[in-house]
Amino acid sequence: MRYVILFFFIGFLSFGQTFNDGSNDERYFEDQFYLGLSYNFLLNHPEGSNQRNLSYGLSAGLIKDIPINPRGTYAIGIGAGIALNSYYSNLVANLSGDAIVYSIEDNITRSKLETHLIEFPVELRWRNSTIEEYKFWRIYTGIKAAYVAGARSKFVSDTASDGFYNTDLSKFQYGLTLSFGYNTFNLHAYYALTNLFDGKASVNNEILQYKPLRIGLIFYIL
């Protein structure tokens, strides 16, 4: 909760700015809140594993805009935010003493891994907006780093259900991002360059090497 309070406190202190010193320098700041909704794919499934149900992601944050050319069409964006991502599959996690043991089960209702992240996006931004025009085309590309603040595994079958906090994920993750679109509605993609798990987790003697791919919509709000 303290991360949420800190995040919104920073947001309230931030504001968009413009400046024009009378020359041809018309740079301006496109400081923006963002809201994201995605479908989450898992790449590099172990043998026998597959996705099920609707794996989804939610994110929100603030990006500080730093223009780098006189017209302000190019900029660097540096931000911070929070995210929740759920991954449904037939991979089941069970707690055995202090160890987490994985198995692949088909006779289950659902099995979910949920992660809570603090994110830090850095973007190279192009847009054809002006100081007066707030509806414009944009292409933003960059990298997003994240710290896994918490994770939880849960499975439900016809006869049992169980859930616990998961500790064998990679605590620091990062990947490539791409957003493009017009005005508020934009397509967004994230491709992980790091594995979801820490490199020690395995199923049937196969190391888990899942890499998330998230595709969806991102909404930018000035």
Rank of each mutant, 00 (worst) to 15 (best):
Tyr3Pro: 00
Leu62Met: 10
Gly22Phe: 07
Thr130Asp: 03
Asp162Trp: 00
Val92Gln: 02
Ile5Arg: 14
Thr184Ala: 15
Gly216Pro: 02
Ile78Asn: 08
Phe33Arg: 10
Asn107Ile: 01
Tyr56Pro: 01
Asn205Glu: 08
Tyr28Gln: 13
Tyr191Ala: 14
Ser103Arg: 12
Leu113Ala: 07
Ala83Val: 05
Leu217Ile: 09
Thr73Leu: 05
Tyr182Trp: 04
Gly79Ser: 03
Phe33Gly: 06
Leu113Asp: 01
Ser161His: 09
Leu196Val: 13
Ser157Leu: 04
Tyr74Val: 08
Ile104Arg: 01
Leu6Trp: 06
Pro67Phe: 00
Leu222Met: 08
Thr141Ser: 15
Phe41Arg: 03
Leu37Gln: 13
Lys154Ala: 13
Asp98Gln: 12
Ile78Ala: 15
Asn183Tyr: 07
Leu42Ser: 08
Asn94Arg: 12
Ala192Phe: 03
Phe172Ile: 08
Trp126Glu: 02
Phe164Asp: 11
Ser161Asn: 14
Asn94Gly: 09
Tyr56Ala: 14
Asp158Tyr: 04
Ser170Trp: 00
Gln209Ile: 01
Tyr174Asn: 14
Phe9Tyr: 06
Leu58Asp: 03
Ala80Gly: 15
Tyr74Ala: 04
Phe33Lys: 15
Ile78Phe: 09
Asn40Val: 13
Ala149Met: 09
Asn85Asp: 10
Ile10His: 00
Tyr147Gly: 10
Gln209Val: 01
Ile218His: 09
Asp162Tyr: 03
Gly181Arg: 11
Glu47Pro: 02
His45Trp: 07
Asn186Leu: 06
Ala83His: 07
Ile66Trp: 11
Asn85Trp: 09
Phe120Ile: 08
Ile66Phe: 14
Glu132Ala: 10
Asp65Trp: 01
Asp65Thr: 04
Leu193Trp: 02
Asp21Lys: 08
Asn90Asp: 15
Leu35Met: 13
Arg152Ser: 11
Pro67Leu: 02
Leu91Val: 08
Asn53Trp: 13
Glu30Val: 11
Gly36Cys: 01
Gly175Cys: 05
Gly79Trp: 00
Asn85Gly: 02
Ser89Ala: 07
Gly81Tyr: 00
Ser103Asp: 11
Gly97Val: 03
Ile66Asn: 08
Tyr74Ile: 04
Ile100Thr: 15
Gly61Met: 05
Tyr147Pro: 06
Arg152Tyr: 12
Asp162Asn: 13
Phe9Thr: 15
Val92Asp: 01
Gly97Leu: 03
Tyr134Gln: 15
Phe136Trp: 05
